[in-house]
Design a protein around this nucleic acid. Sequence first.
DNA 1: CATGAATGAGACTTCATTCAT
DNA 2: TATGAATGAAGTCTCATTCAT
Lengths: 211, 211, 211, 211
Amino acid sequence: MTQAPRWRRRKEARPSEIVDAALGAFVERGYAATRLEDVAARAGIGKGTLYLYFSGKEELFKAVVRQHLLPALAAAERRVETADGPTPALLAEVLGTLIAAAAGPMGAIPKLVIGEAANFPDLARFYADEVVARGFGVLRALVARGVERGEFRPMDPDAVAPLLAAPMLLTALWKNALEPHASRELDTATMARTAVELLQLGLLPRREEGP
Amino acid sequence: MTQAPRWRRRKEARPSEIVDAALGAFVERGYAATRLEDVAARAGIGKGTLYLYFSGKEELFKAVVRQHLLPALAAAERRVETADGPTPALLAEVLGTLIAAAAGPMGAIPKLVIGEAANFPDLARFYADEVVARGFGVLRALVARGVERGEFRPMDPDAVAPLLAAPMLLTALWKNALEPHASRELDTATMARTAVELLQLGLLPRREEGP
Amino acid sequence: MTQAPRWRRRKEARPSEIVDAALGAFVERGYAATRLEDVAARAGIGKGTLYLYFSGKEELFKAVVRQHLLPALAAAERRVETADGPTPALLAEVLGTLIAAAAGPMGAIPKLVIGEAANFPDLARFYADEVVARGFGVLRALVARGVERGEFRPMDPDAVAPLLAAPMLLTALWKNALEPHASRELDTATMARTAVELLQLGLLPRREEGP
Amino acid sequence: MTQAPRWRRRKEARPSEIVDAALGAFVERGYAATRLEDVAARAGIGKGTLYLYFSGKEELFKAVVRQHLLPALAAAERRVETADGPTPALLAEVLGTLIAAAAGPMGAIPKLVIGEAANFPDLARFYADEVVARGFGVLRALVARGVERGEFRPMDPDAVAPLLAAPMLLTALWKNALEPHASRELDTATMARTAVELLQLGLLPRREEGP
DNA sequence: CATGAATGAGACTTCATTCAT
DNA sequence: TATGAATGAAGTCTCATTCAT
């Protein structure tokens, strides 16, 4: 149907297949302990084929981070921008979604970036400025919206945003790093519900502060 | 009093000096990228001398974690157990202390453990069960105390504890992994103050819930 | 006259185009450091196409040597065989031509062969026996001619031939290997003139040796 | 007897042992085809030990060149500077020595440098400027001495020097690269004698040029 | 005929660990 | 007890060669 030249079809799918394989491997063993040969095996290709698509381990790592985080982030931004309705409900929804996502495999990425930040300064910068800052931005906007509409107490959105993100981070790291080895589980649903409840209450205007 | 000749003192201090050197090295480069030769150099000893005190890199890593976390944890436990006075104030104090500590070099340890959890399952288990669980225990006790004394709404302390820990974790990781590379700083003091305010309000009994 | 369709011309030219491309690449980077992909690119063909004409890198190398040296050698042989006139003038002409040729790109071939002799014994043998020996043969014939005609002192042509070849070799290697990196140039014309002068005088009969 | 610290004795001999082993290996197979593992085996050490003394293959190569050529060069310089007696005899002695040396294993170094010049520009520059230029300098001084003392015709020493060097170069390359594979040998002694004879005669004042 | 995607053997290099001194 | 020279397993990366298209 498409006029794709013979081999291209495969070639175009490859990078993304490799990145997926790499994510899996990195998540399981960490960046340093992952052998490129394993990544290749997971992707069902030869060792050298990796180098047709990525200039080395480092580039592959960066590609993993970029490919898996930016789409999710963009989705979150859009959700908040286009939302209407009461802010507390929006907060509940966003927090719930984030925490649920953090419990999944995507939550392994922060672990990777945090662990390797010292060895990949530019990746750390990218992650800090483009992912974390943008993520905080979404939450800041959410808080500002609530404050403006009188649904939240007047608070500095810059100071509050990290606190909204914190439960998600904790979930991501616990679920992807420690829980597999721990003797007790964390109930994500309860976690999310409690977080929303606690933060909502913390943000709502106190009665005596009202008019 | 002890008949130990002077130079024994040095010998007895060695393991701890080495562990300190190792912590510094691990924090700066991560576990895998740290060369034992660098640790030895930091400790001012020869490469081979390390092996007189630790059986290898792995043991050294575990010693780092054990040595630096358990004392802080024990201190926190004692503080809560022996405290009297209103719980909200105690919460403020504990959270403030924890977040401040997380911003310091000790906050680098979670980063290490999280990053290497997959490669050191028994260390991960140790950390999850002995450090995290015990840490949560302190916070759980704190919440339970407030609930019992009617200072907090009735809530499940198990569900709330992680939420109290989350800002500390975020601080630890941000300060020790990303901020050195990021273009913006996190104001720890504001962070702590806002966290306390938000969580206190979220925990306090709502007026209409009172009698 | 031939019924070959036009595009066959291209096909027939291919091997020679490839050999030219290979010569350029080998000369620039050396045999081992030359990637077949670069040769293909220089020749304007695909990597796999090389293998339709040459069975591998080694064959290609041999083809380069054979194709570029034998014609020049045959020309030199013919020149000496058919020459008449005084031998000193012929010596001057031949030496001048050889040194001039050595300064050009063809002079890069000795460099290649010499550098790879150990890895290509049969090529080394071919070069030693078919190129060098034949080349020496031309010079030997030249000297013998001069001796026979009483224009040169009686000398062993076998012993003199290498000495006539030496300036050419030095020129070839200097121009093609070292000069590009050196801070001083070699003046080929002066070199040739001085060589001819020196060798002519060295070969001419001394007056007291005459009758 | 020496107060050399335990391991030092060995450590100090090592670099030179390794360089010797490397020279042998490079000469036999060429730079690119030589595996560091072979060099190590020749030196009787482990693969990794090489890296305690040389930062890599490239450094090792450069060390080989520097270590083996500069002493011989310095010796030649001294010989000419301190010589007295007639210049033609000095010329005979120097040329004879050089050609004899070129026929030995040291003569393999030019082959190496020439073959790898393109891949080691700085080594090529070093060799061209420090070895070749200095070598030419010795010969230039020799010629100038003869001219000044009226033992040689007035000639430009700069133009003559390369011609004196050429037989040595040819000997070095033939003996070390091609002859092992060729069916005929080059008689070094005859070569040297003929070269001296030819060049001396070429340089001596012609009778009619005298007063 | 021509291509270039895919491969995997092989080389360089690093570094945890050992052990003679 | 302390050292650091030595080691070799293991990992990253290159590139000649193959073969489906």
